[in-house]
Design a protein around this nucleic acid. Sequence first.
DNA 1: ACCCAAGTGGTACCTAGGTAGCTGTTCTTG
DNA 2: CAAGAACAGCTACCTAGGTACCACTTGGGT
Lengths: 235, 235
Amino acid sequence: MTPDNNHYPRYLLALKQSAFLKDSSPESLARLLNLMTAEHWRAKTFKNSMDVASTFHFIVSGRLKVFKSNPDTGREHTVFVLSKGDVFDVLSLLDTDPNDVYWEALDKLEVLKISMDQMRLWINEYPVMHKAILYYLGQRMQQLMSIATDVTLHSTLVRLAALLLKNINGETRKLELINNLPNDEIAGLIGTTRSVVSRHIQELKRCGAISVSRRKINVKNLEILLSIAEEKHIP
Amino acid sequence: MTPDNNHYPRYLLALKQSAFLKDSSPESLARLLNLMTAEHWRAKTFKNSMDVASTFHFIVSGRLKVFKSNPDTGREHTVFVLSKGDVFDVLSLLDTDPNDVYWEALDKLEVLKISMDQMRLWINEYPVMHKAILYYLGQRMQQLMSIATDVTLHSTLVRLAALLLKNINGETRKLELINNLPNDEIAGLIGTTRSVVSRHIQELKRCGAISVSRRKINVKNLEILLSIAEEKHIP
DNA sequence: ACCCAAGTGGTACCTAGGTAGCTGTTCTTG
DNA sequence: CAAGAACAGCTACCTAGGTACCACTTGGGT
């Protein structure tokens, strides 16, 4: 992409605001952007790990879920929801064996892409990136540990309450990242099925913790939600 | 530790054989060992993340489980079993916020320890280490993704069969890493409870997949185990 | 404006697996 | 070597949550 592109300034700003690239100089980011190509994915675009192994992606806008599934039962478990400023796939960047993970756009997705090899070269020119990647992976690791143990250690209701709390904006008290998701997707996030989520949403409505309009959950009472998430609330 | 220590050669060999330190030169490893202190933990020694945050450990012999638990119910879920050549805690090394994970020795444990700050300094002198850590984290990440989704995507029987297959030595056909573990610990590894594991072990015995003597599981029939793990076997 | 697909709410049923408890056996430690 | 702790096996029971429906609502596209 050349700097005369209509969206160039917006893309550059997105790179600058990314947690993954936060330690990089403006010059190095401009160089990176020059090597990148913009691409739009429509909602529900599906990719497997093979598809994304040879190209590195940076998300400018929209959300992408990373999930595993059991083809026999059709069950899915979402591991991460990536959004603006996130990149994928970091693991392919490290030459690790491909992992059988799936990727699906939750919204219209705007990404910048670059070949994996070019990205590796770029990184090697900026040693500070190694630290940034380490930090990024460390954080993801922590999240993953919680996800891994949540299912066995907590009930679905507790996990749902915890999910809402985790994604609430402290200021506006509105849901972020997981707003406007259908029950199906929420189910994938806590490792259960749609009908169970629907059931629990009714429960949370009944006790006044939340209110619901189509595809939209509003948190009404943080205290109740907290006590449920901490397993102190006996419904 | 000085080179005149009785165990010095054995410790140095352990460092050399570690996957984590595999790219380091013999000289750098000797320097590292000089900064380290040996320590012995008896079986069932318990540590929380605070205890291990300020000291970096290298395992010379024995096994250590890394787990999360729900104090209310007493349930535990083991995330990793670390053994010879493994190090902990890598996450503390990266300055990430402490994660509430617990550590417990499964056997008598022989570790080499070094202060976290000294370890950071040592790493910064050998840039090749950054790549090694990245690779190590990447691998762990993959494992974690599977652990995270296994519980929702597969039944306990399938997970048990998969656990056995994953830890079988191709040559000797004997279990490694998880041999001699009580049912309790096996339960923690697949995110269930002792009695369920015991139940499934009886099932696997009955269909001829394994045989059991006290604290010891012998795999008798790989094919059956495989078909169970792939959910093709209807018991 | 209309239609159809996507999404939600609700019900009834069922089973995997968690809980509790007891027994006999085998290590281990004083 | 004796006592008790740790461990495996087994039974009976119970419930969280998964499966399978159907009916109603909504909103985007033609």
